[in-house]
Design a protein around this nucleic acid. Structure first.
Lengths: 121, 121
DNA sequence: GGTGTAGGTTTCCTTTAGGAAACCAGTTTC
DNA sequence: GAAACTGGTTTCCTAAAGGAAACCTACACC
């Protein structure tokens, strides 16, 4: 029936739009990995550099700014000598953890699958 | 205790690696959206073009090839006149649905939040 | 006053992603 | 035999992403 079809299409397009919205915020090579890194503990700039393999200071700085603008991360300058800066997920940033965790879960299964595949060759 | 710390680090780095593996496969602007589009029904080339707003034939073709190489999508040429080609998620491709669905869920919550925010201004 | 550390920014450069449009092959319909 | 449709590929081009290295500020230590 036509009504059911239309409903299907509507559900579908809302789904697509939502996926797209999420990807627009998590765009680029690094954001997801930064959030993943912060999802365990808050970290300082240098700790993030060390933790996220391959990222350059420029990119980290830029991506953190975007995440901060989107309300996912907070930046706090600590009153230490020399100053240290802590980055932390906001409560809103933590709502992305299910997304990250599903990615991690899939990545682990995938790694196992790939390793099994290459062992069979 | 040092053992607990080491365990933490190990868990953490496995998590990071898994997230990275997933992102390596879903790289680029389009793959996630293609999978999202196929997660409801199999679709033909032209249907995908229509469904995924903004994608060009070149990109769709290229991304579908990569997805096929990674065993996430199958391509079947149907014996119709003119020939039509159907793309479908493999069972393995379907295992990505939880990831996509979490993204969609977050995207919907985010859209509501943004709309509420702009209404308050 | 030289060295070191934290946290960046700036500059310069290369690579890649991605878009637009033209083109093509096979088949059908007019 | 011209036009139209599907499912692409090819070419050409631009914009954006990203990397490396130098530089900068503020403070501390010695």
């Amino acid at each position: 029936m036509a009504e059911k079809e239309n409903l299907d299409k509507a559900v579908c397009s809302v789904h697509h739009m939502a996926v797209r919205d999420t990807m627009d915020i998590l765009n680029g090579k690094w954001k997801i990995r930064i959030i993943a890194s912060l999802s365990f503990h808050k970290k300082r700039f240098m700790e993030l550099i060390a933790d996220i393999d391959g990222i350059a200071a420029k990119m980290l700085s830029k991506e953190l700014q975007e995440l901060e603008m989107n309300g996912l991360v907070t930046r706090s300058v600590l009153n230490t000598k020399p100053i240290t800066v802590e980055y932390e997920l906001t409560p809103y940033g933590h709502t992305l953890k299910p997304v990250i965790n599903e990615m991690a879960a899939w990545g682990m299964k995938h790694r196992k699958k790939v390793m099994k595949g290459s062992a069979l060759k």
